[in-house]
Design a protein around this nucleic acid. Structure first.
Length: 234
DNA sequence: TATTGATCATAT
DNA sequence: ATATGATCAATA
């Protein structure tokens, strides 16, 4: 397809029926700017992202036919694939951490790695790189070529090690001791609409305490390594 | 200046 | 309210 052409009618596209179809769609939009792709799906791109932080993700969801809405499921439910845009700096390296999922602090004691939301979300991920050099206006940032990622056994081991350590702390009532410093590849950080948000969590006696909502994030160095591996093996 | 902690928008 | 989509901005 010629660069700049539109592979679908305005904002109306169903979910992809296969992995191959999803990849085909993703590769078709590579090279377009957020402004161009936004126009295709009926999303206006503001000048700056301060009040449009999730705009790249919203646009790609629509463009690729992800099931709209906020549910604790993969973006492409039938395919079991999660969509993540990843902001790249001028050097092609991830500029930010990658949010994985919010944490149900009170339920952490009753789950394990195999059944965790983190593993479910990360079993298969379509990473869509997006230019994010701060001197490039939001609407002029280009979408890159997407990569489909499934964690290798080694990558799973790294994730599992961090997850188990952090889950144990939460379950033991030590959520307030957790900082962003913990975790080699996976970290726990605040995830809230504002500073007054509170969520129930166990305290050290097993009683309830109220604390900031938290989420799991992938460190940039980890996603950088993942992208490097995917680039090398294609 | 890299990283952690805080925050913004939308959907259900 | 709380999930989704993330990036901003204060700190070390």
């Amino acid at each position: 397809m010629k660069k700049g052409t539109v592979p679908f009618s305005k904002g109306l596209i169903g979910p992809p029926e296969s992995e191959a179809e999803l990849l085909s769609r993703a590769w078709d939009v590579a090279g377009l700017t957020l402004g161009e792709l936004g126009a295709c799906v009926g999303v206006e791109v503001p000048d700056e992202s301060l009040r449009a932080k999730g705009i790249a993700g919203q646009i790609l969801e629509k463009a690729l036919g992800a099931t709209a809405g906020s549910r604790a499921e993969p973006d492409f439910v039938e395919l079991g694939i999660e969509l993540k845009t990843i902001p790249l700096d001028a050097g092609g390296k991830p500029k930010e951490s990658t949010f994985v999922c919010s944490i149900s602090l009170a339920a952490m004691a009753d789950t394990d790695w195999e059944r965790s939301t983190v593993l479910k979300k990360l079993s298969k991920v379509l990473f869509v790189p997006v230019e994010a050099a701060s001197d490039t206006p939001l609407r002029d940032r280009r979408v890159g070529r997407a990569y489909l990622w499934a964690p290798t056994p080694e990558e799973q081991r790294l994730l599992r090690t961090d997850w188990e350590r952090l889950a144990e702390m939460i379950a033991a009532g030590d959520v307030e001791e957790i900082t962003g410093h913990l975790g080699e590849v996976l970290q726990v950080r605040p995830k809230a609409p504002h500073g007054r948000s509170r969520r129930r969590a166990p305290d050290e006696e097993g009683a309830v305490q109220w604390t900031m909502p938290r989420g799991f994030y992938l460190r940039p160095a980890f996603t950088e390594a993942v992208l490097a591996r995917l680039r090398a093996t294609e």
